[in-house]
């Protein structure tokens, strides 16, 4: 498929593959990969002993202990499994409205993180959302699947660009939770301009088992609007209008509301030991994305 949004930029991907996402400990029942799991099994690194029970592999019996203490125990080793990564790029109309669409940046970030995940044998799912979650792209793994993901994301993006959908992040998170996916890392890439406000978004994120990584695509004008005077602002997604006479006092209240909104999101991420990244859509995406990876590693 023609790469409409130039998601598969070789330089961009090369830089991305130098980065690593490291999980503290992944949920059990995954596939073999590079992350330490909460499972005990047949790995390399010794973890613990437990009494022998019929059916255990005799090769795991520690005969030295049997010789010294007369007790039959088996050795347990850490399992190394994959980290499921669920990436949710926001493709609502507000992400497309500007000359340099934030949605493209969101998709680039999504592909970059997908490249990192697939490169380290993790399972990656991409779930674009607007006023609802798109589950048409099934989670996949393997380095060769990146092109397929980029094609699917490009196709979905082209549809979303024409559709002018609204934003309902809370419902989308709730839908993702309802899919019953294995516990992993959920990456939300959005402007977070959900008309329901930050508290509604967080109420759904808090109910999710996944560790959050929130990537805010923003512009300096978001916090420092250049509007002045008597203005009727119309929401590009909902069409709701709000008459406002903008003066310095109003601007201060606006900034305060903006800061409170994103402070709530940041505070939540800190509590859940997740990640937070704010990307200026006008600046180099890869450079900004790399700031998330301290020493080339992002610990999820």
């Amino acid at each position: 498929m023609n790469d409409e949004f130039q998601l598969l930029n070789p330089d961009f991907l090369e830089q991305a593959r130098a980065l690593r996402i490291v999980a503290r400990r992944v949920a059990p029942a995954g596939r073999w990969a590079e992350h330490r799991s909460r499972d005990r099994g047949q790995g390399i690194e010794f973890r613990d002993y437990r009494p022998y029970s019929p059916g255990d592999d005799l090769r795991s019996v520690d005969w030295n202990i049997y010789r010294r203490l007369g007790r039959v125990v088996v050795r347990l080793f850490e399992e190394m499994e994959d980290l499921p990564i669920y990436i949710m790029p926001d493709l609502s109309y507000s992400m497309w409205k500007e000359a340099h669409p934030r949605a493209v940046v969101a998709m680039q970030v999504a592909i970059g993180l997908s490249a990192i995940g697939l490169d380290q044998h993790d399972r990656v799912g991409v779930f674009p959302f607007g006023d609802e979650l798109d589950t048409s792209v099934r989670p996949t793994s393997g380095r060769g699947r990146l092109t397929l993901l980029a094609d699917a994301l490009t196709r979905i993006g082209m549809v979303a660009q024409r559709r002018r959908s609204g934003t309902d992040l809370a419902a989308s998170v709730a839908r993702l939770r309802g899919l019953g996916l294995r516990e992993g890392l959920v990456v939300v890439i959005s402007d977070f301009f959900d008309p329901q406000g930050a508290r509604k978004i967080l109420s759904e994120l808090k109910r999710s088992r996944h560790r959050p990584l929130l990537v805010a695509i923003s512009r300096p004008e978001d916090r420092e609007p250049t509007l002045r005077g008597d203005v009727r602002v119309r929401d590009c997604e909902t069409g709701a209008v709000q008459d406002v006479s903008i003066n310095e006092s109003v601007l201060m209240k606006y900034r305060k509301a903006y800061d409170e909104h994103f402070d709530l999101l940041r505070s939540f991420v800190r509590q859940r030991q997740g990640g937070w990244l704010q990307i200026d859509s006008e600046q180099n995406v890869m450079e900004q994305l790399a700031t998330l990876f301290d020493g080339g590693r992002f610990v999820a």
Partner: peptide
């Protein structure tokens, strides 16, 4: 009554909190 010039914005979320309408 006041006349406003209409401008489309990405979100009115923060304007609603900051609203302070004055009569033009």
């Amino acid at each position: 009554r006041v006349q406003h010039r209409e401008i489309e914005v990405l979100s009115t979320l923060f304007w609603k909190s900051a609203i302070e309408e004055t009569r033009a």
